[in-house]
Design a protein around this nucleic acid. Structure first.
Lengths: 345, 345
DNA sequence: TCGATGCGCTTATCCGGTTCAGCACCCCGT
DNA sequence: ACGGGGTGCTGAACCGGATAAGCGCATCGA
């Protein structure tokens, strides 16, 4: 295990100074092309890789982005969303030779503390904020810190940090119109955390569309996205007097759990109950029947979020043209599968 | 956005030198208790957080651990295993104020390149190796690099790096004896990647136990752990001439997919087919019937792996007592649920 | 009373890069 | 021949901590 090679070693080998080596390696002017080539050749031969800490100390940039997730291990495990998102984020970051630092936290306070520490330590150059809430203290907090951040969700009107989001209202309309066309009139919804921004966006969109279509009052029950609650709520809905003929779920996990409950109660899907899931993860194709769901490319979404963050972190745009502050991502699209069919009663 | 506070600022405020501040903050001798208290008070008041890069440069330690995952975004998303593992790893790391750096790669070559770069850059102090293979080039590679590493899986006889693993043979025996007791004689298995170490361990254990119990030759089909393959293989098994009365799956995803196929084919579970899943994720309780599965605490496993790595990275044990080189984790336990029952034919 | 000891702190150096000021040199026009 | 200006490189400072060496001073035993 030989000692790490530093620019001083290269300088000695090339017979030049440290400064010249630095210029050569960074493609900056200050050395002749001949010298540059020689230095690059020697660096490559010696297998030089710059020490990240030294560089960070000099240029005061960590070349890393932070992601703090405020979800339990169980939820994170079962929800394909997060890993797909991370996967997309990661792809963009490593393409730009940025690292991803991950931390899992329990409370908002802890999460904000993590941001404070990361930023004070200069461990990250920016962060991505997931699970954007209706009232989200983190937005102002990171803005006050001066920590570059991008919200994964929105839109955030009047917010001081950029957001990447997709329209949730249109897909809601699409779902209801689809179910309405299939003859469904009693439609229930198993929603996600009530405090999340996209939940409230959907709450409103569903309510408006339901009114327009003249549907019976839509029952909406908020959940914590877990299978347990999805099952419990579905069981209650399906055993109530005015049983819905269709249930829409805000995520895939609760939808799969709901399908399980329908099986358990001997209620045929889609004959006597139609099911629609949000977030078309592979989970939705695991079941029988496969779940009709809202397809969106979460990995691409993650990639876009990371790009927005890098643009936000990056040097002041040379063209003087600032990157778009907020970006709207392609909306989710309905993928009909076996779990939806005509209403019977 | 005020400027970051450094030890020089604290030194100036306290009227002492930088060195004294460093000694005080790190709890080392060299300053009187009175001065130490004063410095600590000032540091706290000014909200001092040491610059990570500067510290790393001095002590040449990154205070971070790397994790490179060689799985597709889809697999990572759908398999609860990884997020639960990460969650556990993360808990241990942040308790020791270590960071977790995550990267997703496509090939072994790329993965090894990442290790080389991380180590050369001193971006990490050590790495965890997931998905240990039967012949695993990474083990020697990181050992040659001198990069501290711990394998998440084993046992690794004669390997140069420590491993944390759990016995896979005993649970295999437990499963087969259980199914045998229920009267099952034709048992099939949907296994995981053939090249993975634990797959081959299970291959052997199942074969041995099957022979002991006098079971018919067990059909084993290897898969890539995805729902698609799980479904396809199950469909083939269930439509073959000598249909198995029980199928054991190497992970939860393929098992859930298998259950879907049984529904699709109108084969009652557990009346005409029993299903056992490895890895008791919440996924197994989402379905109806809930899946009998092998419970293991993956989060705790991840925590243990991280602990082993930190012990391996850490300072030479002062007591002269080296940490255990390889650690065996608690074995998985069978949790019988609705998907298994007596064989009928 | 004097040298030895040790405490408490300062000074200086180092880690490995980046970057700025400055200098030697060459080319050029006049 | 000489000043002006650009090129190509060097030396040194700097980023923010850790740490070894050194030094003044009080304490203590002989």
């Amino acid at each position: 295990m030989t000692r790490r090679v530093t620019i001083a070693d290269i300088a000695a080998a090339a017979g030049v100074s440290k400064g010249a080596v630095s210029y050569a390696l960074n493609g900056r002017p200050g050395v002749s092309e001949a010298t540059r080539a020689k230095i690059l050749a020697i660096a490559a031969e010696m297998g030089f890789v710059p020490n990240r800490a030294a560089r960070s100390l000099s240029v005061s940039s960590a070349q890393a982005v932070g992601l703090a997730l405020r979800r339990s291990a169980r939820t994170l495990g079962i929800e394909p969303y997060f890993m797909e998102l991370i996967s997309g984020i990661e792809a963009t970051l490593s393409a730009g030779s940025y690292g991803l630092t991950l931390q899992i936290v329990d409370t908002v306070e802890e999460e904000m503390e993590v941001y404070r520490r990361w930023w004070a330590e200069r461990r990250v150059d920016g962060v991505l904020l997931c699970d954007v809430g209706v009232e989200d203290r983190r937005l102002d907090y990171v803005a006050d810190l001066g920590l570059p951040a991008v919200a994964v969700g929105g839109p955030l009107d009047g917010a001081r940090i950029p957001a990447v989001w997709h329209d949730d209202a249109d897909p809601c309309r699409e779902i209801l119109e689809y179910l309405h066309a299939l003859g469904h009139r009693r439609i229930a919804r198993v929603a996600g955390f009530a405090h999340l921004l996209h939940t409230s966006t959907r709450d409103r969109a569903y309510a408006e569309t339901a009114a327009e279509l003249g549907l019976d009052a839509m029952t909406t029950v908020h959940s914590d996205y877990t299978g347990e609650q999805g099952a419990r709520i579905t069981r209650r809905l399906l055993t109530s007097a005015k049983r819905p003929t269709a249930i829409v779920y805000d995520n895939d996990v609760t939808a799969v759990a709901g399908l399980g409950v329908a099986h358990e109660l001997g209620i045929g899907v889609p004959e006597r109950l139609s099911i629609v899931a949000w977030d078309d993860s592979p989970l939705c194709r695991l079941t029988h029947p496969a779940l009709t769901s809202l397809t969106r490319d979460i990995t691409a979404y993650g990639a876009q979020c990371a790009e927005a963050l890098l643009a936000h972190i990056g040097p002041v745009p040379p063209s003087g043209e600032a990157p778009a502050f907020s970006v709207q991502f392609q909306p989710a699209q309905l993928s009909p599968r076996g779990s939806t069919g005509p209403a019977r009663d």
